[in-house]
Amino acid sequence: MWKWIQAFASPRNFYQTSGKIIPWLMAPFIALSLIGLYWSFVVSPADYQQGESVRIMYVHVPAAWMSLFIYIVMAIASGIGLIWQIKLAHIVAKVSAPVGAAFTLLALVTGSVWGKPMWGTWWAWDARLTSELILLFLYLAYISLHNAFDNPKTADKASSVLAIVGLVNIPIIYYSVEWWNSLHQGSSISTTKISMQIDMFIALMLISFAFKFLYGALVLMRARDEVLVREQNSRWVREIIVGVGK
């Protein structure tokens, strides 16, 4: 079975298949973003306490979810890459890191922009905010560690260890608002209850899914590029590149 998976995940096969999938991720991303913007600006109501500022949540929360989601994907891909030595898994982990870092930064900044008028401060060193900032540093550490090696195999190994160890931060971020007294509010959405009006929830979900599709498209695009670089000495890459030139 491993042989079969390895054949399917072969760089060449991936390059050809993924090219066809990207438009199918981009189309839902654009559609969901547009509907999501309409829902968050027009359909969803103002909050009884936060007033209109609640609308910041529709970018903040999906971005924060992405920061966790992408890290988990990155760590799992790193684990698969380490154990089964699948090149493509390492590539997915590597190209995910900058996207994850961007979403983490977006979550931190939009949170700050919401915090100023609502809490009365741009920043507080509470458990949630601090652990999310550590997540940003983990992404940046991963990126710089990967760049520090010339040999992609060594780089993959070293940075996957970092990605896997850093995984402990994820439950800390998620449960920080329950384990400690924090300034940040608790989760409104869990498997058991949704403490949110339905149109607010829909707006949140639309943008959240839009971001998921965006991430999928970006990972495929970036992974295709990485595949070309890493396989540049093989004939099929040469054929593609020379063909592009004609």
Binding site: A102, F103, T110, W114, L218
Partner: peptide, 30 residues
């Protein structure tokens, strides 16, 4: 948006900028 004009628009513009930068950098690298 009431008195939160700057805060809300800043958030959405930042989100847009993030998405745009991710796309442009991906295309440029390729």
């Amino acid at each position: 948006f009431d008195k939160y004009t700057t805060y809300i628009w800043a958030s959405y513009l930042l989100a847009f900028a993030t998405v745009a930068i991710l796309f442009i950098s991906t295309k440029a690298t390729h």
